[in-house]
Protein backbone atom coordinates (compact mmCIF):
# COMPACT_ATOMS: atom_id res chain seq x y z
CA UNK A 1 0.00 0.00 0.00
CA UNK A 2 1.12 3.52 -0.83
CA UNK A 3 0.01 6.40 1.40
CA UNK A 4 0.86 10.02 0.53
CA UNK A 5 0.89 12.78 3.15
CA UNK A 6 0.01 16.17 1.64
CA UNK A 7 -1.41 19.48 2.87
CA UNK A 8 -1.52 22.51 0.63
CA UNK A 9 -0.31 24.79 3.43
CA UNK A 10 3.27 24.47 4.59
CA UNK A 11 4.05 23.84 8.25
CA UNK A 12 0.87 21.94 9.09
CA UNK A 13 2.70 18.80 10.23
CA UNK A 14 3.05 16.58 7.13
CA UNK A 15 6.50 15.41 8.11
CA UNK A 16 5.43 14.93 11.74
CA UNK A 17 2.59 12.64 10.61
CA UNK A 18 4.59 10.83 7.89
CA UNK A 19 7.59 10.01 10.09
CA UNK A 20 5.62 8.83 13.12
CA UNK A 21 3.28 6.76 10.94
CA UNK A 22 6.29 5.09 9.32
CA UNK A 23 8.00 4.57 12.68
CA UNK A 24 4.91 2.91 14.19
CA UNK A 25 4.69 0.53 11.22
CA UNK A 26 8.42 -0.09 11.72
CA UNK A 27 9.74 -3.04 9.66
CA UNK A 28 6.58 -3.01 7.55
CA UNK A 29 7.22 0.58 6.42
CA UNK A 30 9.24 2.53 3.95
CA UNK A 31 9.37 6.32 4.08
CA UNK A 32 9.95 8.32 0.88
CA UNK A 33 10.54 12.06 1.30
CA UNK A 34 9.26 13.58 -1.95
CA UNK A 35 9.71 17.19 -0.78
CA UNK A 36 12.91 17.31 -2.80
CA UNK A 37 13.38 21.08 -2.45
CA UNK A 38 13.42 20.95 1.33
CA UNK A 39 13.43 17.34 2.49
CA UNK A 40 13.48 16.97 6.26
CA UNK A 41 12.24 13.51 7.21
CA UNK A 42 15.93 12.71 7.72
CA UNK A 43 16.16 15.30 10.50
CA UNK A 44 13.48 13.49 12.51
CA UNK A 45 14.52 9.93 11.57
CA UNK A 46 18.34 10.15 11.42
CA UNK A 47 18.71 7.43 8.78
CA UNK A 48 22.03 5.90 7.81
CA UNK A 49 22.43 6.61 4.09
CA UNK A 50 24.16 3.84 2.18
CA UNK A 51 23.52 4.80 -1.42
CA UNK A 52 23.51 8.15 -3.24
CA UNK A 53 22.63 8.35 -6.94
CA UNK A 54 22.76 11.41 -9.20
CA UNK A 55 19.51 12.21 -11.06
CA UNK A 56 19.94 13.63 -14.53
CA UNK A 57 17.63 14.75 -17.31
CA UNK A 58 18.52 14.03 -20.96
CA UNK A 59 18.82 17.30 -22.91
CA UNK A 60 19.44 17.71 -26.65
CA UNK A 61 22.84 18.14 -28.24
CA UNK A 62 22.84 19.16 -31.92
CA UNK A 63 25.29 17.96 -34.56
CA UNK A 64 25.18 20.99 -36.90
CA UNK A 65 27.06 19.04 -39.61
CA UNK A 66 23.99 16.81 -39.94
CA UNK A 67 21.26 19.39 -39.27
CA UNK A 68 19.34 20.67 -42.33
CA UNK A 69 17.53 23.39 -40.33
CA UNK A 70 14.10 21.82 -40.97
CA UNK A 71 12.82 23.08 -37.59
CA UNK A 72 10.84 19.94 -36.64
CA UNK A 73 12.62 19.78 -33.25
CA UNK A 74 11.39 23.24 -32.29
CA UNK A 75 7.84 22.54 -33.49
CA UNK A 76 7.42 19.51 -31.22
CA UNK A 77 8.89 21.16 -28.10
CA UNK A 78 6.20 22.46 -25.74
CA UNK A 79 8.70 24.40 -23.66
CA UNK A 80 10.76 26.34 -26.25
CA UNK A 81 13.82 24.41 -25.13
CA UNK A 82 15.00 23.90 -28.72
CA UNK A 83 14.64 26.31 -31.61
CA UNK A 84 15.79 26.57 -35.21
CA UNK A 85 16.49 30.24 -35.83
CA UNK A 86 18.59 31.96 -38.47
CA UNK A 87 21.12 29.39 -39.62
CA UNK A 88 21.46 27.59 -36.33
CA UNK A 89 19.65 25.52 -33.71
CA UNK A 90 19.61 26.87 -30.17
CA UNK A 91 18.95 24.82 -27.06
CA UNK A 92 17.85 26.13 -23.65
CA UNK A 93 18.63 23.18 -21.35
CA UNK A 94 17.02 24.75 -18.26
CA UNK A 95 13.66 24.76 -20.09
CA UNK A 96 13.97 21.14 -21.32
CA UNK A 97 11.70 18.53 -19.68
CA UNK A 98 13.68 15.65 -21.18
CA UNK A 99 10.83 14.10 -23.22
CA UNK A 100 13.11 13.13 -26.11
CA UNK A 101 10.56 14.23 -28.76
CA UNK A 102 13.12 16.26 -30.70
CA UNK A 103 15.50 13.28 -30.86
CA UNK A 104 12.73 11.01 -32.18
CA UNK A 105 11.49 13.46 -34.80
CA UNK A 106 14.81 14.64 -36.25
CA UNK A 107 14.88 13.24 -39.82
CA UNK A 108 18.65 13.74 -40.07
CA UNK A 109 19.43 11.99 -36.75
CA UNK A 110 21.34 15.12 -35.80
CA UNK A 111 20.26 15.19 -32.14
CA UNK A 112 21.80 13.17 -29.36
CA UNK A 113 21.22 13.58 -25.62
CA UNK A 114 23.52 14.74 -22.88
CA UNK A 115 22.65 14.43 -19.18
CA UNK A 116 21.94 17.53 -17.12
CA UNK A 117 22.32 17.09 -13.36
CA UNK A 118 19.18 17.87 -11.32
CA UNK A 119 19.93 16.43 -7.89
CA UNK A 120 20.42 13.19 -5.99
CA UNK A 121 18.35 10.35 -4.57
CA UNK A 122 19.64 8.81 -1.34
CA UNK A 123 18.55 5.54 0.21
CA UNK A 124 19.24 4.00 3.59
CA UNK A 125 17.71 2.74 6.83
CA UNK A 126 16.12 4.53 9.75
CA UNK A 127 16.06 1.71 12.27
CA UNK A 128 13.93 -0.92 10.56
CA UNK A 129 12.18 1.62 8.34
CA UNK A 130 13.51 1.80 4.80
CA UNK A 131 14.42 5.37 3.94
CA UNK A 132 14.49 7.21 0.57
CA UNK A 133 14.69 10.91 -0.16
CA UNK A 134 15.50 13.20 -3.08
CA UNK A 135 17.49 16.40 -2.93
CA UNK A 136 17.27 18.93 -5.78
CA UNK A 137 20.30 21.00 -6.80
CA UNK A 138 19.90 24.54 -5.41
CA UNK A 139 18.62 26.84 -8.16
CA UNK A 140 17.11 23.97 -10.15
CA UNK A 141 13.39 24.28 -11.03
CA UNK A 142 12.67 20.77 -12.30
CA UNK A 143 11.49 18.79 -9.26
CA UNK A 144 9.20 16.15 -10.89
CA UNK A 145 12.01 14.07 -12.47
CA UNK A 146 13.64 13.71 -9.04
CA UNK A 147 10.30 12.83 -7.41
CA UNK A 148 9.79 10.16 -10.08
CA UNK A 149 13.23 8.72 -9.29
CA UNK A 150 12.36 8.64 -5.58
CA UNK A 151 9.12 6.80 -6.40
CA UNK A 152 10.92 4.25 -8.59
CA UNK A 153 12.46 3.04 -5.33
CA UNK A 154 9.08 2.20 -3.73
CA UNK A 155 9.30 -1.24 -2.15
CA UNK A 156 6.00 -2.97 -3.02
CA UNK A 157 6.49 -5.37 -0.11
CA UNK A 158 6.28 -2.54 2.38
CA UNK A 159 3.76 0.15 3.29
CA UNK A 160 5.18 3.14 1.46
CA UNK A 161 4.65 6.51 3.19
CA UNK A 162 5.28 9.40 0.78
CA UNK A 163 5.87 12.79 2.37
CA UNK A 164 4.69 15.36 -0.23
CA UNK A 165 5.87 18.94 -0.62
CA UNK A 166 3.41 21.73 0.29
CA UNK A 167 1.43 23.43 -2.46
CA UNK A 168 -0.84 22.09 -5.16
CA UNK A 169 1.20 22.04 -8.36
CA UNK A 170 3.36 19.58 -10.32
CA UNK A 171 5.56 18.33 -7.45
CA UNK A 172 2.49 17.50 -5.32
CA UNK A 173 0.62 15.82 -8.17
CA UNK A 174 3.72 13.81 -9.10
CA UNK A 175 4.01 12.66 -5.49
CA UNK A 176 0.39 11.59 -4.93
CA UNK A 177 -0.31 10.11 -8.38
CA UNK A 178 -0.45 6.32 -8.20
CA UNK A 179 -0.85 6.19 -4.41
CA UNK A 180 -3.76 4.40 -2.72
CA UNK A 181 -4.61 7.10 -0.19
CA UNK A 182 -3.80 10.72 0.56
CA UNK A 183 -3.69 12.03 4.13
CA UNK A 184 -4.34 15.78 4.07
CA UNK A 185 -2.78 17.41 7.13
CA UNK A 186 -4.20 20.77 8.07
CA UNK A 187 -4.91 23.09 10.98
CA UNK A 188 -8.27 24.65 11.90
CA UNK A 189 -7.40 28.19 10.83
CA UNK A 190 -8.51 30.30 7.84
CA UNK A 191 -5.05 29.67 6.35
CA UNK A 192 -5.27 25.92 6.81
CA UNK A 193 -8.75 25.85 5.29
CA UNK A 194 -7.87 28.05 2.32
CA UNK A 195 -4.89 25.95 1.30
CA UNK A 196 -6.64 22.64 2.10
CA UNK A 197 -9.42 23.52 -0.35
CA UNK A 198 -6.90 24.23 -3.10
CA UNK A 199 -5.00 21.00 -2.49
CA UNK A 200 -8.21 18.92 -2.34
CA UNK A 201 -9.44 20.48 -5.60
CA UNK A 202 -6.07 19.72 -7.22
CA UNK A 203 -5.89 16.10 -6.04
CA UNK A 204 -9.56 15.07 -6.30
CA UNK A 205 -9.54 14.62 -10.12
CA UNK A 206 -6.97 11.83 -9.63
CA UNK A 207 -9.70 9.78 -7.90
CA UNK A 208 -7.54 8.84 -4.91
CA UNK A 209 -9.42 8.51 -1.58
CA UNK A 210 -8.48 11.24 0.90
CA UNK A 211 -8.87 11.88 4.59
CA UNK A 212 -7.88 14.68 6.95
CA UNK A 213 -5.62 14.80 9.99
CA UNK A 214 -6.31 17.96 11.98
CA UNK A 215 -3.20 19.21 13.73
CA UNK A 216 -3.34 21.78 16.56
CA UNK A 217 -7.03 20.86 16.57
CA UNK A 218 -7.94 22.96 19.62
CA UNK A 219 -6.98 26.36 18.13
CA UNK A 220 -8.75 28.45 15.47
CA UNK A 221 -12.34 27.85 14.44
CA UNK A 222 -14.73 25.14 13.25
CA UNK A 223 -14.64 25.94 9.53
CA UNK A 224 -12.26 23.12 8.56
CA UNK A 225 -14.61 20.62 10.22
CA UNK A 226 -17.59 22.11 8.38
CA UNK A 227 -15.72 22.00 5.08
CA UNK A 228 -14.68 18.36 5.63
CA UNK A 229 -18.29 17.36 6.36
CA UNK A 230 -19.50 19.17 3.28
CA UNK A 231 -16.70 17.79 1.06
CA UNK A 232 -17.16 14.26 2.49
CA UNK A 233 -13.58 14.09 3.71
CA UNK A 234 -13.31 11.70 6.69
CA UNK A 235 -11.63 13.14 9.79
CA UNK A 236 -8.96 10.53 10.54
CA UNK A 237 -7.24 11.94 13.61
CA UNK A 238 -6.84 15.06 15.69
CA UNK A 239 -3.70 16.23 17.48
CA UNK A 240 -4.01 19.00 20.10
CA UNK A 241 -1.82 22.08 20.37
CA UNK A 242 0.53 20.82 23.06
CA UNK A 243 3.67 22.49 24.38
CA UNK A 244 5.30 19.09 24.94
CA UNK A 245 4.93 18.23 21.23
CA UNK A 246 6.36 21.60 20.20
CA UNK A 247 9.36 21.18 22.49
CA UNK A 248 10.07 17.69 21.09
CA UNK A 249 9.77 19.00 17.53
CA UNK A 250 12.14 21.87 18.27
CA UNK A 251 14.73 19.28 19.34
CA UNK A 252 14.21 17.28 16.14
CA UNK A 253 12.41 14.38 17.84
CA UNK A 254 9.64 12.36 16.23
CA UNK A 255 6.18 12.81 17.75
CA UNK A 256 5.96 9.19 18.96
CA UNK A 257 9.33 9.60 20.63
CA UNK A 258 8.24 12.82 22.37
CA UNK A 259 5.00 11.21 23.52
CA UNK A 260 4.77 7.42 23.06
CA UNK A 261 1.04 7.61 23.93
CA UNK A 262 0.55 8.69 20.30
CA UNK A 263 1.63 5.26 19.04
CA UNK A 264 -1.94 4.05 19.51
CA UNK A 265 -3.30 6.97 17.52
CA UNK A 266 -0.98 6.21 14.59
CA UNK A 267 -1.85 2.51 14.67
CA UNK A 268 -5.55 3.41 14.56
CA UNK A 269 -4.83 5.93 11.79
CA UNK A 270 -3.27 3.17 9.69
CA UNK A 271 -6.13 0.75 10.36
CA UNK A 272 -8.60 3.46 9.46
CA UNK A 273 -6.82 4.14 6.19
CA UNK A 274 -6.60 0.41 5.38
CA UNK A 275 -10.38 0.15 5.75
CA UNK A 276 -10.99 3.21 3.58
CA UNK A 277 -8.65 1.91 0.87
CA UNK A 278 -10.37 -1.46 0.99
CA UNK A 279 -13.83 0.15 0.73
CA UNK A 280 -12.84 2.35 -2.16
CA UNK A 281 -11.39 -0.61 -4.08
CA UNK A 282 -14.71 -2.45 -3.60
CA UNK A 283 -16.56 0.57 -5.00
CA UNK A 284 -14.29 0.49 -8.02
CA UNK A 285 -15.01 -3.21 -8.55
CA UNK A 286 -18.76 -2.57 -8.65
CA UNK A 287 -18.57 0.24 -11.20
CA UNK A 288 -17.58 -1.18 -14.59
CA UNK A 289 -14.77 0.70 -16.29
Amino acid sequence: MKIAVASGKGGTGKTTIATSLAAVLDRRAQILDCDVEEPNCHILMSPSINCSEVVTLPTPLIDMDRCNLCGKCGEVCNFSAILTIGKTVLTFPELCHGCGGCVLLCPEKAISEIPRELGVVETGQAGDVEFVHGRIRIGEAMAPPIIKEVKKRINVNRIAILDAPPGASCPVINTVRGTDFVIMVTEPTPFGLHDLRIAVDAIRPLGIPMGVVLNRCDIGNDEVNQYCNHAKLPMLAEIPFDRKIAVGYSRGDMLIKTDPDYMNMFERLFQNISCLVHESSKVHEVIPA
Partner: peptide, 10 residues
Amino acid sequence: MRGAGIQAAK
Protein backbone atom coordinates in the same frame (compact mmCIF):
# COMPACT_ATOMS: atom_id res chain seq x y z
CA MET B 1 4.21 29.46 -19.15
CA ARG B 2 7.78 29.95 -20.26
CA GLY B 3 9.79 30.64 -23.40
CA ALA B 4 7.65 33.62 -24.51
CA GLY B 5 10.69 35.64 -25.58
CA ILE B 6 12.18 32.69 -27.46
CA GLN B 7 8.98 32.15 -29.46
CA ALA B 8 8.55 35.88 -30.14
CA ALA B 9 12.12 35.96 -31.46
CA LYS B 10 11.29 33.01 -33.70
